[in-house]
Design a binder for these strands. Structure first.
Lengths: 214, 214
DNA sequence: TGAAAAATTGACCGGTTGGTAAAGATTACA
DNA sequence: TGTAATCTTTACCAACCGGTCAATTTTTCA
């Protein structure tokens, strides 16, 4: 009789338990979505990971899509922060280098978020077409900045878009393809030090490749 | 009564229809697995893509795993060919540049294979642990070659393993993240010319980054 | 403390999925 | 041509999956 949908209660403020449980669930969902993709993840798995029953989980999030959507939204917010921080007034090569460093740190510290995103893009981004348009706007803006740097002779004459792609690709690779990276590096080199090696290498690669001397 | 399992018939050679149908099915399976991942793909989808009924498909491949396994095996065979071709006797920078070009061509011509592999790695490579070990051996071998080139002053002093990772990442990015690449480039630049632009950029990046002058 | 609100659970439901059984249609070939 | 092997289809099943319901337990707070 009584419609008991506290999650959707419009004007009602959230309980302490609500806030805690929602965080717990989102963490579990991130783990499972990142590991199996949207279709491959089951609500039961997420519930078990969160240590609760399926109906209990569904009491907080009415369905799978909403959990996924919330994770994607939250992800994009923090994920694009390094690119937003690219400072048009800064020293070009320094800006690019710290962008690369920050992106690599994110791959190290938030691999699940990276894989969540990769899963979604890989399967054609069916649920985030709008967000990709926003991403395009940000990239357009930053590509212009990079273009101006090039005009001023501060960087080699490269395509700014493909430059950004190559930064994304090389840094996120260490999160998305972690299993492959660790297997290939072998047990001795696949400790956390691999990120320092990667940072050193990428710095060499991009400094060499983007220096305007050529 | 009679066990009718012609696919598994040991010593019997394959029918013409068998060969045709198996190829048809594997093509359909590649399409669906690449788009949805192993778990996300359904036998019904694959059967429909192949234009036949599900039981008919299962007459040729007894289950989903076997189709997937066969695709992965076939994929790795051709996928690693460019790396195998890296010639220890060739001119180092030229060898690397053609390796990059070949990998980029594969991303352009076989994007489904790339996505199939990416899906598998992304989800922890549960079904191809053995194959990854073989991959490691090949990379170990080629890393030594690259190491010798560096010792001889033919390449900048970079980590060969991370160098290979960066080549994989930047080239496969154009297959795996195609949706994102096309959205960001916009309708005008996302034609097939994007691969030529990518080739030009990657050539600049790696030639600059790997030149031994520094 | 007590009662209302919030949180949790077990039982259940309709649809999907991987896979099977068995009978019918087609093809190869002696 | 006849028939045995191969191929295809219809009907089906058990397990799983997303989600609901109603009842129970726990928490909040007047």
């Amino acid at each position: 009789m009584a419609v008991a949908v506290p999650r959707a209660a419009k004007t009602q403020r959230r309980t302490r338990i609500q806030a805690e449980r929602e965080e717990l669930i989102l963490g579990a969902a991130l783990e499972v979505f990142a590991a199996h993709g949207f279709r491959g993840a089951t609500i039961d798995q997420i519930a078990e990971q969160a240590g609760m029953s399926k109906p209990n989980l569904l009491y907080y999030f009415p369905n799978k899509e909403i959990m996924h959507r919330m994770l994607i939204d939250r992800l994009l917010e923090t994920w694009l922060e390094p690119l937003r921080k690219l400072d048009p007034e800064g020293e070009p090569l320094t800006e690019i280098r710290s962008y690369i460093r920050r992106k690599l740190e994110m791959a190290r510290d938030y691999p699940r978020e990276s894989r969540l995103f990769a899963n979604e893009i890989l399967q054609g981004a069916p649920r985030i077409a709008d967000e990709l348009e926003d991403l395009k706007k940000l990239v357009d803006e930053k590509a212009k900045v990079i273009g101006r740097w090039i005009e001023r002779g501060k960087l080699a004459r490269v395509d700014p878009y493909h430059m950004i792609f190559s930064i994304w690709a090389t840094t996120q690779h260490y999160a998305d393809f972690d299993v492959q990276v660790c297997t290939v590096l072998g047990p001795k080199r696949s400790g956390e030090g691999r990120f320092e090696d990667a940072a050193r290498y990428l710095d060499q690669l991009f400094v060499g490749g983007l220096n305007p001397k050529a």
